[in-house]
Structures are given as structure tokens and as C-alpha cells.
Design a binder for these strands. Structure first.
Lengths: 168, 168
DNA sequence: CTTGGAATGTCAACAAGGCTGACGTATTGT
DNA sequence: ACAATACGTCAGCCTTGTTGACATTCCAAG
């Protein structure tokens, strides 16, 4: 683990070696497994999957969002999203209200039961995140977020920042 | 939602608020998209997908690894893995050599062409990672890796560290 | 008022990549 | 000899993504 005694050249770009980059790549792979493990487990019994979790998350985050918005956010086709939404609506977790200004639009909201499930899912995911944050400490967390943000596509970063700006 | 305006107590645990955790969660979601985007694009034409990329990556990392090893590393069943390996072998990218000590085992190696594809894929992924690292800087990168490692399941962390120890 | 285009829903068909279960074969170790 | 191991394979299923085609509903512009 120790970072090799460094040939030194002022700024020391050792963190940009292929070795270091590869470790970062593998860390992303394994960490993402842990990241999704808890919600996956919770949804296992409920005949739902990760796609449902993502929809629930973003509907919770942006209540009243439209189907188009959600499509762009999740990066899937309307057909794919529609299948998920249909299941969520049938299960009584999500409500699709016809838009008042534009009645073609469907504004999506969580029902009380949907909100309960959302809380269960995000509690589990947050708990793992909290443990990781606590272990790593505030400085590490700041770096964590900086690197992730720099790794995003421009479009994703735009969406991420729009969400973050809303209440964070 | 917000954890109350910080009672303050020296160490400031503001980075553990639900808000901060949620931002971390969303950052992971969007960043992972970017993380996989480049290899996905490359493999698109080749009638291969992310599963093939993962297999190629770990065969490159651990030349001569067995099917069982790879199964454990990727966290998939042998049937799932077999489908991928069959395609890779048929495409002349991977070679399965019968074990010398134990001839039940198949030891997996990249062919020259497999190694070429591996390089193409990892170059693309590393390039994005490098850009992100460079933007964020060495301190951020250290934090990034710390948080990711803390986020892994124990089993994943074990595997990650076994890989890292091998040459990093 | 009519009509074009946008937003949405839905049907059908398909593919990737997971899964389980069952079975076969070669090989190894007891 | 026999049980266990490592691997391959067939069959079938699920989730979640894709395209293409088409209907509906509605806003807005001519």
C-alpha cells in the first residue's frame, strides 16, 4: 500500500501512473458492487430490480417530474422506462398525475407506500455510504466527490449539478 | 432531510448529513455511467458487451487464472461466464490451456489479439480516469480510493487487495 | 378550425447477460 | 473403486435494455 519512495520532481505525478489508474478502475468496479448490493437485496423479494430503484430515487428527488425528464435522467428509452413505471403504478408506489398546464405530461409522485419503500432503500444505501464516509473521513470524502464529478460525461455532470443545486 | 444546522463540536460531522450522503450516492450513479461509457462504445460494434470487457480485464490482470477464480472475481455463475468465455475463445481473443498439475483446470490467457483489444479498452478507460485524476489532484485521488475501499463488501475488498498486492 | 408536431402510451420482437436445474465428462484424491 | 472437483453444456426463465410502428392527446400556429 505504501506509495513507493517517489523519484520526486516537484509535483510528483506518481498518482497518474498506469498502475494507479488501474487500481482506481478496479476500485470503481468492486465498490459499485457494494454500492448496489443492499437495495438489490431489499428489492429481491418484491419482484423488482435496480431499474425500479433508480426510478423511485429520482421521483423522490424531483417530485412531479415528467416521464421525459426521467427518461433523460436515467438514460433509457421511454419503452424501457414505461415498463418500470407501469409496474410501480400497478404496485401502488407511484402516481402519475395529468399535467395541469400541459395535459399531455404525466407528473410523477411517490405514494405514501412508495415513499416508505424509498426510505427503506435509501436508508440501506445511505448506511453503507455513511460507514464508508466515517471510515475515510471528511478530507477523503471531498476528494471522492471531486474525482467522481470529474469522471462524469458532460451531460451527466449537468444533470448531477442540477439535482445538487436543488437542495444541496 | 437536513441533519439540523450542525451542533458543532470541533470535528464537524457535516459531511455525514443525509444531504451529503445523497450527493455521494448520486455522484456514484452518474460517475459509473461515465466510467463504463468508453469501453461500451468500443465493444458496441464487436457484438460484445460489458461482461466480455470484465472477463478480458481480469484475465489480463491474472494471466493463467482458472475458470473458478474468474467466476468468484466477477461474481457470476459458471453458466454465465461460460457463455462469455466461449465467445471470447471463438473470437480468438482468449486461450484456455489445460492445467499441467491439475488437468481438470483451464488456465486462461489472452492471445495477442486479445491483448490488443485489452489495451484498446483499458487505454480508453484509463484516459478518462487520468483526466479525472489530473483535474482532481493527488490528495483527492487518495480520498477517492479510501472511500471506495470502505464501500466494498468484505469479500470484494479481499479480492481487490489480492489483485492490488500482486503488482501495485 | 384545421393541422403539424410534441408528449405519452402501448404492442411486438429482439438481445445481452444475469439466474437455476440437470446432466455429462474428465480428472483427482482418498 | 469411488466420491468429489473442475468444467462444459443444454434448457428455460427473468430483468432490463433496444427498435420499430402506431394510437392518442393536446398545444400552438396558420
Amino acid at each position: 500500500m505504501a506509495e513507493a519512495p517517489a523519484p520526486q520532481g516537484g509535483s510528483s505525478l506518481l498518482f497518474l501512473t498506469d498502475e494507479q489508474l488501474r487500481k482506481g478502475i478496479e476500485a470503481m468496479f468492486f465498490a459499485y458492487r457494494g454500492f448496489t448490493a443492499d437495495p438489490d437485496r431489499i428489492l429481491e423479494g418484491r419482484e423488482m430490480g435496480r431499474a425500479h430503484h433508480r426510478a423511485i430515487h429520482f421521483i423522490h428527488r424531483s417530485p412531479g417530474t415528467t416521464v421525459s425528464n426521467l427518461m433523460a435522467l436515467l438514460g433509457v428509452t421511454k419503452q424501457s422506462l414505461n415498463r418500470v413505471l407501469r409496474a410501480l403504478i400497478a404496485a401502488g408506489l407511484v402516481e402519475a398525475r395529468v399535467g395541469r398546464r400541459d395535459r399531455r405530461e404525466r407528473h410523477l409522485h411517490l405514494t405514501e407506500e412508495g415513499a416508505r419503500l424509498e426510505r427503506e432503500l435509501s436508508d440501506a444505501q445511505r448506511e453503507r455510504m455513511r460507514a464508508a464516509y466515517r471510515t475515510a473521513g471528511p478530507v477523503a470524502v471531498a476528494g471522492f466527490r471531486q474525482v467522481l464529478e470529474a469522471m462524469m460525461d458532460d451531460e451527466s455532470r449537468r444533470q448531477y449539478e442540477a439535482l445538487a443545486g436543488r437542495s444541496g
